[in-house]
Simulated scan of single mutants.
Amino acid sequence: MNHFIRLFKEEEGQALTEYGLLIGLVALAVVAMLGFFGSTLVNVFEQVKDELKAAL
């Protein structure tokens, strides 16, 4: 019984877990943003590439 009570009172691993959850949330947001803006980014980079090609 004391083992279970000690597990709930310990806070050592909580910070690492919170950072892991935060990193996972940021990664999920980045993937969602790339999915949403992906085609727009491709068009922008293709336009830059074409303009650089024309300038040379």
Rank of each mutant, 00 (worst) to 15 (best):
Y19H: 12
Q47K: 14
L28Y: 03
A29Y: 06
M1R: 11
F4W: 13
G38C: 10
V42C: 01
L52M: 14
T17S: 07
V31W: 05
G38K: 06
L7Q: 13
Q47R: 08
F4R: 10
G35P: 00
E11W: 06
I5S: 08
E11A: 09
L21V: 09
V26E: 00
L41H: 03
M33L: 15
A29W: 11
G20Y: 02
E18T: 06
E46P: 02
G24W: 03
E11V: 10
T40W: 07
E18H: 08
M33H: 05
L16T: 04
I5Q: 14
R6G: 02
F36S: 05
E11N: 07
G38N: 10
I5F: 15
F8E: 09
I5P: 00
I5T: 13
F4D: 14
T17P: 00
L22Y: 03
F37N: 04
Y19D: 03
A55C: 03
V31E: 04
H3W: 09
I5D: 13
L25D: 06
E12H: 12
E10N: 15
I23P: 00
G38R: 08
E11I: 03
A29I: 12
Q14E: 13
L34R: 08
V42K: 15
E46L: 07
V44D: 02
S39K: 15
E46T: 14
E18R: 02
S39P: 02
L56N: 08
F8N: 08
V31H: 01
V48A: 11
E51V: 03
A32Y: 11
E46S: 10
G35L: 07
A32H: 07
A27D: 02
G20R: 14
G24Q: 07
L22F: 04
A27M: 10
I23M: 14
L21R: 09
E10S: 14
G38E: 14
F45W: 12
E18S: 05
R6T: 09
E18M: 05
K49R: 12
N2E: 12
L41D: 02
A54W: 06
A15I: 11
I5L: 15
E46C: 01
F45V: 15
A27F: 05
G13Q: 08
K53T: 10
V31M: 13
L21P: 01
Y19W: 05
F8G: 07
L21T: 06
L16K: 07
L41R: 00
Q14P: 01
L56I: 15
A55D: 03
S39A: 10
K49D: 09
L52S: 10
F8K: 07
K49P: 00
